[in-house]
Write a protein that binds this DNA or RNA. Sequence first.
RNA 1: GGACCCAUAGUUCAGUUUGGAUAGAAUGGCUGCCUGCGGAGUAGUUGGUCGAGGGUUCAAAUCCCUCUGGGCCCGCCA
Length: 637
Amino acid sequence: MSFKKFAAQANEVIKFALEEFDIKNKSYTITEPPKEDFGDLSCNVAFLLTKELQKSPYQIASLLVEQYRHYYNQNKQEFGYYISSVAAHESGYINFKANFDLIGNEISSDILENNLSFLDLGKHKKVIVEHTSVNPNKSLHVGHLRNVVIGDTLYRILKKTNHDVTVLNYVDDSGVQVADLLVGFLYLKFPIQPADKNIKFDKYCGNEIYVKVNELYEKDPTLIEKRKSLLKKLELGDPEINSFASKITLKVLTDQLVTCWRIKARYDLLNFESHIIRSDLWKKTFEKLQHEKIIAKETEGNNIGCWTFDSSDEGTKIIVRSDNTATYIAKDIPYALLKVGTIEDIFNYRIFAKQWDDTNLWSSTTDNSGNVTRPIFFPAEYSITVIDSRQTRLQNIIKEILNKLTQKANEYRHFSYGPVLLSSRTAKSLGIGGASEKSVQMSGRKGIYIDADFVLDTCYSKAKEETMKRNPEITGEDLEKTSEEIAISAIRYSLIKNDLEKEIKFDMIDSLSLEGNSGPYLQYAYARCCRLIEKSNAKSFYGDMNYLSSVIENRIIKHLSKFTIIIEDTINAMEPKLIAHYAYELATLFNIFYEKLPILKEIDTNISAARISLVEAVRLVLKVNLCLVGITPLDRM
RNA sequence: GGACCCAUAGUUCAGUUUGGAUAGAAUGGCUGCCUGCGGAGUAGUUGGUCGAGGGUUCAAAUCCCUCUGGGCCCGCCA
C-alpha cells in the first residue's frame, strides 16, 4: 500500500541528491523516526558522508535537501508526490513528511473498494505446517496450547497470503507414554471409564492414570519391565495389544481435538506413528539410509550392534538399537522424507471428522479401503514443524540427514519456540515451588501443569460475568458465544504476542485479564467500529479523506498504509507476533481517535462522512488482523 | 564438561535482524475524564546504572570479546 510508495520516493530523492554530488553506491537507511515531530521517514545518509565531504552532518543534509528542492522546483511532475516536505534537521537527519491527503484517499480505495485482495505472496506455494502433535495419553495443558496457537496462526497467515497450506497433526500412538496408559489399564486395573462421567477421557488418562502409573514405577520396578514388553508388542504390531491401544489413543485424541477445535485450530490430516512404523515406509527409509551409507552398523564399542549416524555437530546418534527397534529420532525420519518429497506417499486415507470450519479432517489408515478421492497431502516445497526449543538438536540431526539424502530436498524448517512455564504465583497456588523460584517447569508426568480447558473455562466465566454487567440485553446462546469468543481471544493473544524464542511465564490471574494489551481490547475496538457504522446508517463509504487533517487521523491513515508491509515482514521473518502488535497499535490509535473527535456527531457532513469511512477502513483491517491471529471479531461484546 | 537460548520500569514484555534523535507499552500504585458515538476506553503521574566490564564507532539496549546470573539440550528414553 501507499506507505511503501512513499518510502520508495524518499529513497529516490536521496539517490538523486547523491548523484548530483557524484556519490554512488553509498549505503544508508531510511527508517521511521522515533518521534512524529521529526516526520514520517528519516534518512541517516548525512552521518555516513562526514569523512568523505569533511562537513558536519547538518551541512551535508542541508546540501542534499537543497539539491532535491532545486530539481523539484523545475520538474514538479517527476517524483515526490507522496512527499509533502523534505527537511534537514539540525541533528543531521533528512526528514520526510508524507502527503496524507493522497495516502488517505489511496488507502481508502485500497481497503474499502478492493477489499484487501492483494496479498498474493505465496503464489500457491505448497506448504506443510505440522503442529499440536501431543502424545495421545493426556489432555492439553497451556504449554501445548502455545504450540497449537503458533501453528494455527502460521496456517492462517500463510493461507491468507495465498500459500497452499496443509496442516498436519502427528499422533505418536506407539510410544512409551501410551505404554504407560496400557500399564494402568491392563495391570493396575484402572476402569475403562472414569467413575465421574462428566470428566473428559483425556483428562482421566492424563491426570489420574498417567501420573499414578509414573508414581508407582518408583515403588514397583517390575511395572517398568511390563511397560517395556508392552512397548515392544506395540512396535511389532501384536494384534490384541494394538487394537486395545488404538481404542484408547483414539478416545484420547478425539478429546484433545475438542480442545483444539475449541480455540479455533483446524487440521487437514492426522498421521499415526503406528501406521508409519508398520508400513513399508520405515523399511524403505531404513534401507535407503543403509544404501546411501548414512548410517552404519557398529561392530565394537558401547553401541555394538546398533545402526548409528555420525552427525558433524552432535556426534554419534543411535538410529536403530541392537534389538532392531527404531529410536525416537528414527521414527521422525520417514515422516520428514514424506514432507519434503524424497520418499513416496504410500498411505491410504479416510475422512476422520468434519471440523468446525466445515473442512474435512483426514487420517492415514492401514486398511485398503482408501480408494476415495482425496487431497494430495505430500510433498511440500516448504515444510514447517512446530516443536518447542528443547527439540532443536534432534531437529537439526533430522535436517542433517535430509541434506545427505538429497541435494534438492525441499526446505524443512524446525519452527522453534520457548516452553511455557508457570509463574511462581500460579505454581504456588498449585502448592508447588519455593518462594525464591521465579517460575516452574510444567510436567505432565508429575501432574504439574495448568490444564488448557481449565484456563478456557475460567476465562469464559470471567468474560461472561463482564459481558452480563455491560450488556444486560445479551442472553442465552448469544451470551455464551460472546463469552467464549472473548475467552479464546484472551488466551490466543497472550500466547502469540510474545517473542517466539522466549519462554512464557504463564500466570493464571494475569491471563484472565480482559484489559490493556489483550485480545479483548482488540475485539472491543472492533465492536466500537461496528456500532458506529451501524448507527451511521451509511450504505457506502465515499468520504473524502482530504477532510481529515488532525494528527490522530493522519496517524491512523499512516498506520493503515503500512498494513501490507507488516504482512510481508511477517511472512519474510515468520514472526506471527508482528500481526498482533500491528493490530494492537491500530486498536489503540482508533480508541484515541474515538475519544478525541466526534464522528457521528460531527456537524460538518463532509468531515463526518470522511471519519465514518475511516472507521470502516479501520474496521476492515482490524477484522483481517483478528482473523489472522485466530480471534473472532465481535459486533457486540 | 560441550552446544544453544535468555537478562530492559515493582511485575509481564516490545525495541536488538538492518547501530542513530529524549529507551516504549501493558500491569500495579496515585489523580482526572460519561446530562458525550459503548469507561473492556482515555488523559496524567509514579517507576529504568537496558545484568557487569571492556572494545569497535562521530554515535551502542542494538555489533564484537570477557565475565556473572538463569534456562535448556547432550540416553540402546520419548
